[in-house]
Nucleic acid binder design. Structure first.
Lengths: 212, 212, 212, 212
DNA sequence: TATGAATGAGTATTCATTCAT
DNA sequence: AATGAATGAATACTCATTCAT
């Protein structure tokens, strides 16, 4: 009985270790993929480079992902889940409608600046994923963005935001934050300071403009 | 007035003709490149296809352009020149400082919507070109964008725009229009109508917000 | 009659069970291999697919067979044993020498038409197996074909078949039936009806021609 | 005038030489392809190996053939044309109906024995080509085989061949010669002498059997 | 006994580029 | 000025096989 228990114990530990290693490598692949995606663009992205980056043969990647598309999908998917969570947290963190919009905008921008690779991937290179949904999900991915629209809508209903077509107002807000992140990420003349300053100013302007 | 002169004359004519032909082929390459860029996107763009399009061998392209990058650069260059001209024309078309900003923004957006591929190329895929300048030029390409900043600055000086860091205000304006174009170009859920509506609303908001 | 004996007993039972299981899995592999061979053809045949088919990892197959060639060999081997048995049965089923030849020919053709993949494998793609023999066997596989020759020889000795080089006569018979099967199997314009008709006619001709 | 003529002359010679070289390489590719096809089978056939065989990079092959299929097609095509010509020549070479059949059979077998690679390709590995026809051709490739059938038919009409279903008689003849060639080509125990002897015997038998 | 992880060699095909002509 | 021939490196992906566990 002792023996068996011990054996089992060892086996369990071994399996656990292996699984952890597997998970680690999987994550390493995802990270490398994200990095190379930013560096070489979506079409310039190759499994071979990912493999080289992590120091494995290309074949190995196929042990962790179906194929190229599957890997790309996984990268986008995990990133997007994170993004969604942050927006939701921001939404929940504020009670005042206008303040909520501002906080949401800031969260959006912060995510983009903190995860430029992933942001580009989601909102520039693979925007098609936004309209895809996985088995078992009710809504397309893009639904996370509806939170911006909802915030504007609610603010408008409580009278603190000017009247007008809600979708257009929401789109304008989205365009503003998306534009800020895009410039900060993509334009070589933008540094952190300039991006930050522009973001603050832009959010102020936006809130002012939306205010009834 | 003798043989030599005549010969020279002939030579000149001949050279001129040749140069014109050369220029024409160069332009044909550029046109084909722009067209294929639009058709297959930046990453799916290949010299072979350009060559096939114009009915020459790939090798021939190398007689007119250093390499693929050089050709792409040239395409971007002419597109950018066009973009600059339009912004300048918009600037010139208005006298009222605020109106000038609005017209500039509209021109910016219009260009982006009308030339999505080229816009993406310049402002997303090859932003590095913006900071490059060619032999003989004094300023980097990005200078065309300074016109937005200048318009804001002048408007601020005449007192119709709120005080504040001019660069940040200009950046906010740029972010707004860039964001609008980017969403309109890249997001599959955006159609022409939604883009237009959002643009108008966003420009209104922006002008309102900038107003002193 | 004590602990040790019991232990031994248990061990024996255990070993037997294990060996039976082993044999079962081995057979399962062979069956799957044969099936996939039929489905995807000789060249499209892969160990991975076999493994997937039986629900084991590819590695497991290596516990039962040396390598891919060994597995294929085993498949061919069992098929060939079947083939031999049928020829022998046909031989035994007739007393009249000429009739015996006819029956043998029919059995040959029937086997080919009923097992086209395996026939091709044995007689087209891996004819090398025909000359190989396994440990413990006295004769190469091809020996089964000698039965055709023997039948001709015996018929000649009883005077019902024309005189002449026996091997050539036997080869001609083999060529006839092999040709029929090959055309029926490989030529897309041959259907079952045409194959059958041709076979009957050809066998009649052959018997006629062989007759003294 | 002298100069120009000379220049032109040189150019022509140069072009001619180049074209000849090109044709030679093309043929070398075809030869290598045929050889490798025999060696490694149809599915084991790869452009890389062809390239290596002729000492060029794989890319080069694409300068001479569209793709793998095109190369294979070309191999089969030229081989089949040759085959057709020989059968036709044999047909034309004899007047006596029975003799014609014998000569045709011999020509068929001779072609197979002389061009085993190509024979296998046409009649074993890519039988689908037999039913294909090229642009501008009226009949499928297989039509060349009809010549065997026609010879039998004509002989039957003149009363020298036994009555019966013509197609079956023709198929039997085809099976005989195809079987002979297949065995000679594919069975390792067959050598030239044995093949020859078997062929002669088989043809004799066949003619005897067909005779009215 | 069976597996999971990993590899190395192989596949067809495309591309940018060079060089001699 | 233009071409034809050729290359080398890249691409995604599959396979048989090995090794430690």
């Amino acid at each position: 009985m002792n023996k068996e228990t011990r054996t089992q114990c060892t086996r369990n530990a071994s399996r656990q270790r292996r699984e952890q290693q597997k998970e680690e490598l999987r994550q390493a692949i995802l990270d490398a993929a994200a990095e190379l995606l930013l560096a070489h663009g979506y079409e310039g992205f190759s499994l071979r480079q990912v493999a080289e980056q992590i120091g494995y043969t290309p074949t190995t990647i196929y042990l962790y992902f179906e194929d190229k598309a599957d890997l790309l999908f996984a990268v986008v998917d995990s990133a997007y889940a994170d993004f969604s969570r942050r927006l939701q947290a921001a939404y929940d963190s504020a009670d005042d409608p206008l303040q909520r919009i501002r906080v949401l905008g800031r969260a959006y921008i912060d995510f983009g600046l903190a995860n430029p690779v992933v942001y580009q991937l989601i909102f520039v290179q693979r925007t098609d994923f936004l309209l895809t949904w996985r088995q078992g999900e009710q809504q397309p991915r893009a639904s996370a963005l509806l939170i911006l629209l909802r915030a504007v809508e609610e603010a408008q209903q409580t009278g603190v935001v000017r009247p007008g077509d809600v979708q257009s107002l929401g789109d304008a807000l989205w365009a503003m934050v998306h534009g800020l992140v895009s410039l900060a990420i993509g334009m070589p003349m933008f540094d952190a300071a300039r991006s930050r300053a522009a973001s603050e100013t832009a959010l102020d302007l936006m809130i002012d403009a939306l205010r009834a």
